[in-house]
Design a binder for these strands. Structure first.
Lengths: 347, 347
DNA sequence: CTGTTAGCGCATTCAC
DNA sequence: GTGAATGCGCTAACAG
């Protein structure tokens, strides 16, 4: 915003019409004569007029901006997500505020507040770890549509878009079965979360369909972390009839499982098949990557944005939960029908 | 912006003071009585008042928002860059509009225009390929500070922050020379860009200093892409006295060169030394990473943001060109004095 | 079809 | 210290 900014009144003056007429051509209204419209447009070009959206927004009490906050833009999963959002947001004529929280919940609170002050008309958030329903409360109470992606936040009355955990688990199991595995473990995760319930359910059903035993010792819960993965595989290997493969609650657990296997002098992929779950992509390059149940981050971003725009246009906000389909990404098969492991490929 | 939004006048009414008083406490002015200030703050909290920045911006003819447009957010180099920008922008009390152009120049024009309409007080842009000085002209003419990063755009009177291409090339050559190489090629890139000129210049000078021949067939241009790299190495290996090492225009080319070498039954790093240039980090994990001339993208982002904020605060815009230092990152030496290759480590 | 009038929510003079 | 006016640039009603 420069000093000598030219305004509607200037161009109205120069074109010999009134401001409202100018306003009308600005909005592409058909209520204005073709001749005057041309005249006005010409003057607009000549004077180098730029539309002031702040003023318009103030007047209309609505903005054409949506906010997106992600927990870790450094992680290419979320960068892709942001790109997906950007694509549909841009083509809908919106611009996006983007903020990175770096898993810092205070920062998240700040940026959300800031965005609110700026009058965003909607928010897409991939919440930082530990986000609670209360953190989004003020936003949703003021009627601003919010879409939570990737991680759902229990108790919040907002729309969310998460991956198809059930189908993902099932696909992983079917894959392992097709490789000849019969003792397939499910490792990691806390049983008291919705995500866990969905994943374990998909696992159980697929096992059952394959005529395999899914109960008992094959399911070993743990913290959904790398350390948890180590603990889980150690426990699982104490079973009399050891598993030969494992579906892990998420990638972090999978990496821990690999760590644990190596401690046991077993090579992941050769001696034991490990499948990860793309909930949290962690340290992609620091460990040998594996076959995973993957989601399409950019597609998720697009879908989230579409959902948000729908709600913005609808005026009415109804919490809605969408499920994003997943696909099994097999990295590299290493013979012997015993699992697979390979290099991670960035989508 | 909801329907029943509470405004300063509401809280003034409820607190029994005037709007201006409220405005003053909002700005933390010391011209207001402690008691009334407390009272006002209490009412603000109670009524759930949210500050309307659009209105404030309109009044003050300035905003607290900066724009950042990148050519490819999918590329983690630029994602990191955006994170760096975000960090300093946030702590300076600004919010950022982020847009991804995907190298699409029309899109870039659109988003820049949109940001202008929104009254950004500054712009950081990593321009799409083919961006011309004219594309930024309207912005700079209206006095809005612009900082161009990564790629400079010739002829534009804006500040820019680029990496030290000259020194980077030289360092790479010296490194290869110290490993015993004497036939060192420069592969990839289009000769008609400023970046190419700088890199080739650093290469030539370093070669000369080492008493080596840098002319003739050792310089092979190509598209700055993976495919271009394949073509370049194939052509380079047709020379009578083959090179034993190559400095590549960028990482994409370097990866292509590795591909090409393997086709020729040569193992990059063992049989032929390859050094990349961190212009575009591509598919970090999909290929064996190599020694590169690296910049710190996040650091560049921070620096760009600082430069921009300085200019915003200074009021006066003076085009300034900053050079970001680079460092040679040697991944792993693999004996025989013939190059080196290793795992890429994310910063 | 076009002009007139009246604010949107805030910050900035000035008086008091 | 505080209150009363005034205007930022624009759009939404009506008039004409």
């Amino acid at each position: 915003m420069s000093k000598g900014r030219v305004t509607v009144i200037d161009i109205a003056h120069a074109a010999g019409v009134s401001k409202s007429t100018v306003s009308l051509v600005l909005q592409g209204s058909s209520l204005v004569n073709e001749a005057t419209r041309a005249k006005v447009n010409a003057v607009i070009r000549d004077l180098g007029y730029v539309y002031n959206r702040s003023a318009a927004n103030l007047r209309q009490a609505k903005s054409k901006i949506i906010g997106i906050v992600v927990n870790d833009l450094t992680n290419s999963f979320f960068a892709e997500l942001a790109v997906g959002v950007d694509v549909v947001v841009q083509s809908a004529g919106y611009v996006q505020f983007l903020s990175n929280t770096g898993e810092n919940i205070d920062r998240q609170r700040e940026v959300v507040a800031s965005m609110r002050e700026h009058g965003i008309s909607g928010l897409i958030v991939s919440p930082a770890r530990g986000t609670e329903a209360g953190d989004l409360k003020p936003l949703v109470n003021s009627g601003i549509p919010v879409v939570v992606v990737v991680r759902n936040i229990p108790g919040a009355k907002v729309s969310s878009l998460v991956s198809d955990n059930h189908a993902g688990s099932a696909a992983a199991v079917e894959h392992l079965v097709s490789l000849g595995h019969r003792r397939i473990a499910f490792l990691g995760g806390f049983p008291d979360t919705a995500v866990f319930a969905e994943r374990i359910d998909g696992y159980r059903q697929a096992m059952q369909r394959a005529g395999l035993d899914a109960d008992g010792d094959l399911v070993v819960g743990s913290a959904p972390s790398r350390a948890g993965g180590v603990a889980a595989i150690e426990r699982a290997m104490l079973i009399a009839t050891r598993p030969t493969a494992a579906l892990c609650f998420n990638d972090a657990v999978a990496f821990g499982v690999c760590d644990g296997l190596r401690t046991l002098k077993l090579e992941p992929g050769r001696d034991f098949a490990v499948v990860g779950f793309d909930d949290v992509i962690e340290a992609q390059t620091a460990v040998p990557a594996l076959t995973t149940v993957s989601v399409d981050p950019q597609g998720m971003g697009r879908r989230a944005a579409q959902l948000l725009l729908k709600q913005i246009n609808a005026g009415k906000v109804e919490a809605e939960t969408l499920v994003s389909s997943v696909r099994l990404v097999v990295r590299q098969s290493c013979g012997a029908g015993l699992g697979d492991v390979g290099r991670r490929i960035t989508a």
